[in-house]
Amino acid sequence: MVVNQHTLFSIPDKSYASIAKREIRQMAEEAGFTAAEAGRLNIVVSEMTSNLAKHAADGGELLVRSLGHGIEVICLDNGPGMVDSLRMLEDGVSTYGSAGEGLGAIKRQSDVFDLYSQPGMGTVIVSQVHRAAKPALAPNAGSHNIGFVMVPKPNETLCGDGLCVVEKGAEVYLLAMDGLGHGANAHEAAQAAVQAYASALPQHPSDMLRNIHQQIRRTRGAVGMVVNVSGNSHKISYCGIGNIAGKLYSSDLSAAGSGYKNIISYNGIIGHNIPGSLNNQQLDWGRNKTLILHSDGLKSRWDLAKYPNLSRHLATTIAAVLYKEHRRHTDDTLVLVLKSKV
Rank of each mutant, 00 (worst) to 15 (best):
S258W: 07
R108H: 12
K289E: 06
I270H: 08
T95S: 14
G122A: 09
I74W: 04
I146F: 15
H6L: 07
M48R: 01
P139C: 00
I19Q: 15
N211F: 09
N243I: 00
V226P: 07
A255Q: 15
D332A: 03
A138R: 14
N145K: 10
G181H: 08
S258I: 00
S251Y: 03
V223W: 04
L248E: 10
D161G: 07
H144L: 03
L62A: 07
H182E: 09
G142L: 06
L180I: 05
D161N: 07
T333C: 15
Q26D: 15
H294T: 06
A36T: 11
T34G: 13
S340L: 00
N228F: 01
H144Y: 15
S10A: 13
G102Y: 02
V227M: 09
I264S: 14
S237L: 01
N228K: 10
N280T: 02
L304W: 06
P80E: 13
R65I: 10
A245F: 09
N78A: 08
V223Q: 11
N262P: 12
L76K: 06
L180E: 08
M121E: 14
S66Y: 01
G100I: 05
K341W: 02
I264G: 07
E23C: 01
G268E: 09
A28L: 05
T317L: 14
I125S: 04
L158Y: 07
P12A: 11
E37G: 08
S251Q: 15
G104M: 12
H187P: 00
G120L: 09
N288C: 01
F9L: 03
D178L: 00
S85W: 10
S127C: 10
A315K: 08
Y266A: 12
T330Y: 04
A193E: 03
T316Q: 14
A256Q: 14
A255L: 14
I274Y: 11
S206E: 15
G224T: 06
I11P: 04
H213W: 05
S251K: 15
V165W: 03
R87T: 13
G39Q: 10
P135Y: 10
D332G: 06
G183V: 01
M1W: 03
L298F: 07
S66M: 09
M48K: 02
G179D: 12
H272N: 12
Y173I: 01
I263W: 04
A319I: 05
F113N: 08
D13Q: 08
N243D: 14
Y96E: 15
N267Y: 02
E30D: 12
S50H: 05
Y307N: 11
A245R: 15
T330C: 06
E37K: 05
V44K: 10
S233Q: 13
I292Q: 08
K261W: 01
Q215N: 13
C159Q: 05
A28I: 04
R25L: 11
N273L: 14
L174R: 10
R328C: 08
A17N: 08
G59N: 09
S127L: 04
I24D: 13
I244G: 13
A193K: 02
Y249L: 02
L86Q: 15
R40P: 04
M208T: 03
M48W: 02
Y173K: 05
A200P: 03
L336W: 05
L322W: 03
K261G: 11
T49G: 05
S250Y: 11
G257E: 11
P139M: 00
G147F: 03
L310E: 12
T49C: 14
S258C: 13
R40S: 12
L291V: 00
M27S: 07
